[in-house]
Design a protein around this nucleic acid. Structure first.
Length: 375
RNA sequence: GGAGAAGUAGCGAAGUGGCUAAACGCGGCUGACUGUAACUCAGCUCUCUACGAGUUCGGCGGUUCGAAUCCGUCCUUCUCCA
């Protein structure tokens, strides 16, 4: 019996939003949760101490990328990913399924698996559902993902149907190859924006009995309404007593819409990526710190934020760091954006527990300026 | 005082008779970024009444159908010799 389970703490009476406590092999994860992404066993520019300081409770890493470098054997020899990167909190590894989408120009899909052309040295690689599980078991993450095909949007119905069937066969193969009792395994719902395909996929995965379920294939270029529909089409077929993870979503409005629809877990590169590009998420919307107007603005980035950056530095200083391409700017903004999203889900949990999630959501969206533009 | 070299858009730097409002880089200004090939990418950066027009390549004056590019002269800077 795996020491992995979910306890529902509170349900919002006005939506499907909920708070839960996920027990990840003795480590607690309160949901809704936002998971910072550390693809290469590193949340870019942040140390494990930084990650803890922003109150992150679980982070993500990536099978495909660690497989290429340094190789799963090295991580295994280090004693697993926690020891390797000196981070003792829960770690979830994505399977490489997203790379089927993001590296589409350098890969070929077959029934057996996916052939990749390495983006590092051009060598030929082959990743199968079994191999993806084997790698993740060696990496030693707390939660592994099954190998799926993340299809682009739009995809025509016939392709999506074919792909879902294959992703399901891959899910079964991966599950059969999985044996670690100290590692959970999640299935991934695909099916594009087709209700019946999402249903077919979700129900088949539930039948296979995974430890949790993800909603994949979103945030691949579709419009917001379509994304929210994909979530609806997927989540209604998923069981209440297992975690629901919306993959790759991290814009403020998307997170709130996801929570409202019953999502427990989110991950996204957005906060760290845009931080490196000078954009910060604030309680009044997104701003780009490189803009000339911040050159002599000696106020904190976000008056309502409790992060290290907002407590200690001004916009003018961050503006200066970015103009000079100083790495500290990347770190400070990454800390801020991650803390901002983690605080967002913390506040959301509180609101759900106090039966005022709808008000919280409406107020947050209004403050962030969603009436005029996306976040 | 003499000899040589050079002055191109905010800066650096190509161009050496028409295809040049002038490559490229930096700087500057905008915008994008959602399970990370991303400290990345895209656009703009002489002026204007702006899918067109007007002024440019140290100044002035020439040669030429046509000049940033050739000639004269002046100014400035740098190097070397006194």
């Amino acid at each position: 019996m795996k020491n992995f389970n979910l306890e529902i703490l509170h349900k919002d009476p006005n939506s499907r939003a909920r708070t839960t406590k996920i027990n990840v092999f003795g480590k607690e994860v309160m949901t809704p949760v936002f998971m910072p992404v550390g693809t290469l066993a590193s949340v870019k520019f942040l140390s494990p101490e930084d990650i803890k300081k922003i109150n992150a409770s679980i982070i993500l890493s990536n099978t495909y990328h660690l497989w290429l470098r340094p190789g799963e054997d090295i991580v295994d020899q280090a004693g697993g990913i926690h020891k390797f990167m000196n981070y003792d909190g829960p770690v979830l590894t994505d399977s490489g399924g997203f790379q089927v989408f993001s590296l589409a120009d350098a890969r070929k899909i077959s029934e057996e698996g996916v052939y990749f052309k390495s983006h590092i040295d051009g060598s030929k690689l082959f990743l199968s559902p079994e191999k993806a599980i084997q790698i993740q078991q060696k990496i030693g993450s707390d939660i592994a993902m099954s190998f799926d095909e993340c299809i682009p949007y739009p995809s025509d119905y016939n392709y999506a149907k074919k792909s879902v069937a294959r992703t399901l066969r891959w899910a079964k193969r991966g599950k059969d190859a999985h044996f670690r009792n100290d590692q959970a395994l999640f299935g991934i719902v695909q099916g594009g924006d087709y209700d019946d395909l999402r249903k077919e996929c979700a129900e088949a995965l539930v039948e296979m009995d995974f430890d949790g379920y993800s909603i994949g294939g979103t945030s691949v270029g579709e419009d917001k309404e379509t994304m929210y529909r994909m979530i609806d089409y997927s989540i209604k077929y998923l069981p209440e007593n297992k975690p629901r993870y919306l993959m790759g979503v991290g814009a403020v409005n998307d997170i709130l819409e996801g929570i409202e629809r019953g999502v427990d877990m989110f991950d996204c590169v957005l906060p760290t990526r845009i931080a490196r590009h000078g954009t910060l998420m604030t309680s009044v919307g997104r701003i780009n710190i490189k803009k000339a107007i911040y050159k002599n603005d000696f106020t904190p980035l976000d008056a309502k934020c409790d992060c290290e950056t907002c407590q200690n530095y001004t916009k003018a200083y961050l503006n200066h760091l970015f103009r000079c391409n100083e790495g500290l700017g990347n770190r400070l903004l990454s800390i801020h954006n991650l803390r901002f999203l983690i605080k967002l889900v913390e506040d959301a949990r509180k609101a759900i527990n106090e039966d005022r999630f709808q008000e919280f959501k409406a107020e947050t969206l209004k403050n962030c300026g969603f009436d005029q533009r996306g976040f």
